[in-house]
Design a protein around this nucleic acid. Structure first.
Lengths: 135, 135
DNA sequence: CCTTGAAGCTCTAGTGGCTAGAGATTGTAG
DNA sequence: CTACAATCTCTAGCCACTAGAGCTTCAAGG
């Protein structure tokens, strides 16, 4: 098995420039090359890139993925560290959700109170200007 | 009233380099200068910068804020456009919350099923590798 | 008036995770 | 053998800042 970067992109759903980017930041190993210096990949890289792609879809950042890849290469090791990374990430997501929910509420509150009149009496503008939502 | 950039920063909670950045991208007007070319601000700029800060805290991007500022300067106009920007933003936030909730669930599911054994049998790694969560 | 030191100035570069484009080369089907 | 799609490297851009270098100015104390 020896495929081009375009084929790898098709197989994994990761764009060609992104694959080269992942190589540059060390998520993918330096690949084999043809005589004309074009990249050629094997089955390992397909698996690895799928791993990367799904990790990104779940919101892991590149540094975390690097660590997860390293850990996944040591199969007999305890998965405590893996779980720790994942739990940390869940906590991170919870914080982000919390923030978004709060600011959604504030926005919706000012929208609800807007009388659909002029900008002058607009609650949305008022809230933005005063920095709190007193009436 | 004529204050330095540091004082403006203290009054609004916006960092000095960020104020200069906002000037550069056109959120703040070109300020008055002393003979030695240091910036001097007035009450208008304090209000405007508070508006910008709170808009950013609510997650509006700079392009939206530019528009909101322009609209807020036309007080007798209908606030329909203001509300439209805010509603669009709420929808945006809802999409982001939805995505985060979904991927949090997937992560938590694989964490729950992890037997705390070796990396080899780790569900978290498995889910990342296969791209779905079949058992 | 003079010194000192904090605060200000401009400019460049870096962050993360890509994406876009220029301009050259290579692979491959007909 | 030719044509053309795919690939190559390199640079720059995105967003909203942040950090740092190396310089100048302001304001208070002596």
């Amino acid at each position: 098995m020896s495929i081009s970067i375009g084929e790898l992109a098709r197989l994994t759903g990761v764009k060609v420039p992104t694959i080269r980017y992942y190589e540059g930041v060390g998520l993918l190993p330096t690949p084999a090359r043809t005589e004309g210096r074009q990249r050629r990949f094997g089955a390992d890289e397909v698996a690895r890139l799928n791993f990367i792609r799904h990790s990104r879809e779940l919101g892991f950042e590149v540094a975390d993925i690097r660590e997860l890849l390293t850990l996944s290469e040591q199969p007999e090791r305890s998965c405590g560290e893996v779980d720790a990374i994942a739990r940390r990430h869940v906590e991170n997501i919870d914080r982000r959700i919390g923030r978004l929910v709060a600011l959604r509420a504030e926005l919706q509150r000012s929208l609800d109170r807007c009388a659909r009149g002029t900008v002058e009496e607009c609650r949305v503008i008022e809230v933005l200007g005063y920095g709190d939502d007193r009436v």
